[in-house]
């Protein structure tokens, strides 16, 4: 067992142990915090596929998070007001059923990622960053001006959506659902890395010209990675909306895109459990520093600067040393 796998195992155990302890001690707020961390980790795990393996510096991943959130918001809004989503050419009703919401969130995120990906992958480097950022802003302004679904104020959903066999209103059960989703995505990411697709994508990040030479299209590989990445972040958005029972345009904001990227970097870019380490640290900082001072973002900024300038591997790099996992 390498140090990194030990570290990952400790993280995973912590994600099981802390909420269990909170359940026994009757601390529902701790469970909510842990749920937040797990959902943010899921969003970051999505970005980690595009950024960590594919080298795509997407500063617009809030688009997919927001789409996931609005998929939940719109479907649940129509279900709770008993009004159909549309009645022509055929009737579509809203729903409170999580699997359907997730399916819709995934499909719409995938479509958005496909269109944004096709356009922004025409370029590379700084252009790509600026373009993804710009598309994020486009969705943000669109959500603000979309008055049918709350516009700037967003929408509240009164009751958390249903999952068969679970009482999602019990914090620990909803947490379990989110954690299961995260574990599935992490297993998927681990397998993706080892798969021919993952290896080719890794090569597309490092030497696209050679990939071209052996007959693989680096742009197409990156596009597929971008779509997969968007779908995962979209699912995280749907869960996040269910956690807060509220969606608003801030889910699309450029700050959030930046934060998802910070989670990945803080934890260690390209590391399997990097997003988890990053999200747990972020939520802990937010909770403890945020309790000390209203201006905790200053400290977050300083920590982030220190990580970028002095600790390239993030937390995983500090704990587990130089990586052996990718390259």
């Amino acid at each position: 067992m390498t140090r990194e796998t030990t570290f990952n195992a400790v993280l995973l155990l912590g994600l099981i142990a802390v909420p269990t302890w909170a359940l026994i001690m009757d601390q529902p707020f701790t469970i909510t915090l842990a749920t937040r961390a797990v959902i943010l980790a899921l969003a970051a795990a999505g970005l980690n596929i595009a950024l960590g393996i594919g080298g795509l510096v997407s500063l617009g991943h809030a688009v997919f998070f927001g789409i996931g959130g609005y998929a939940m918001g719109i479907l649940a809004h129509h279900a709770q007001s008993y009004s159909p989503l549309m009645d022509w050419p055929f009737v579509i009703e809203g729903t409170k059923f999580m699997p359907v919401i997730w399916l819709v969130a995934s499909v719409v995120s995938a479509l958005a990622a496909l269109v944004i990906g096709i356009l922004s992958l025409r370029t590379t480097g700084a252009y790509f960053i600026m373009i993804t950022l710009a598309f994020g802003q486009m969705f943000y302004y669109f959500a603000i001006s979309w008055s049918a679904y709350g516009g700037e104020d967003g929408m509240s959903i009164y009751v958390r959506n249903d999952f068969p066999g679970l009482n999602t209103l019990a914090p620990i059960q909803f947490y379990g659902l989110c954690l299961a989703m995260l574990v599935i995505v992490l297993i998927f990411s681990a397998r993706l890395r080892k798969s021919p697709f993952g290896l080719a994508l890794n090569a597309a990040r490092q030497v696209p010209a050679r990939l071209d030479a052996v007959g693989l299209n680096p742009v197409r590989l990156k596009l597929v990675a971008f779509v997969i990445s968007g779908v995962i972040t979209g699912l995280a958005g749907a869960l996040f909306a269910d956690l807060n029972r509220f969606v608003s345009p801030t889910m699309f904001s450029w700050q959030f895109s930046g934060e998802i990227m910070v989670l990945v970097i803080l934890g260690g870019v390209g590391r399997l459990f990097g997003p988890v380490a990053g999200a747990v640290t972020f939520v802990a900082l937010e909770h403890f520093l945020g309790g000390l001072t209203e201006f905790w973002h200053i400290f977050l900024g300083v920590i982030l600067l220190a990580v970028v300038l002095f600790a390239r591997g993030g937390i995983t790099g500090l704990v587990a040393g130089k990586e052996a996992s990718h390259d």
Partner: peptide, 24 residues
């Protein structure tokens, strides 16, 4: 000499510091 990712993150960190500092 760093890649764009580092530049994005470091300047994002500067935004956080400037914005909160100004609010302070």
């Amino acid at each position: 000499d760093s890649d764009h990712l580092d530049q994005v993150l470091a300047t994002f960190a500067l935004i956080l510091i400037f914005s909160e500092g100004t609010r302070w």
